[in-house]
Design a protein around this nucleic acid. Structure first.
Lengths: 93, 93
DNA sequence: CTTCGACCAGATCACCCTTGTTCATTCTTG
DNA sequence: CAAGAATGAACAAGGGTGATCTGGTCGAAG
């Protein structure tokens, strides 16, 4: 599923055009991104929470050369599904 | 940051009321959830991708009794930030 | 058309995950 | 707006899983 499909679903849900839905989706995602960047955490009841996570540096391996390399600490964005969402995915195949 | 704040941001971005933005956010999130449930994966260019991940069964420990327990395989929803989003969080503190 | 993401290899260790209760926060309804 | 209801976060501890590193290419998506 890609962005276009999501836009269609949103358009259908909100009864608006795809163009409108496209901006809508973009606005929401941008809002979430902004929230994660500024507050470091975005909690949405009934859905889940996005959190800016720091990954500690560690020793990795270059798959090409099999040579051990030092991986610097990095920051990523994690998503923790709420119990409701977890319950939803559990039943699906 | 909670859902209300996100609603405010979206409302501001789309120039609509908070009530409208609330439904908007809900629709988008529900759409994403639906996509993950049906397709198992939702890729959004420039933001990231949600994926339904299966966690294999393993042996855990009951934190209270320290007793080893068998944990059944479960399904969760993972989020992989796109390079752009990663780049964004890298620069933020 | 151009860019963005997926893929895959192998190996390592950081981080997630379990339980269960309590509290705080948030959402909803009157 | 206020109060009640519901959901999530935190904590503890340890083992094992999976995320992730590189990087070039292909396919798809915008």
């Amino acid at each position: 599923m890609n962005k276009g499909d999501l836009v269609e679903v949103v358009a259908s849900s909100l009864n608006e055009t795809k163009a409108q839905a496209s901006r809508t989706v973009d606005a929401v995602l941008e809002g979430i991104a902004k929230g994660v960047l500024s507050d470091g955490k975005v909690t949405i009841t009934g859905f889940g929470s996005f959190e800016k996570k720091k990954r500690a540096a560690r020793t990795g391996v270059n798959p090409h050369t099999k040579e051990p390399i030092q991986i610097a600490a990095s920051t990523t964005v994690g998503f923790k599904p709420s119990q409701a969402l977890k319950n939803s995915v559990q039943g699906e195949s």
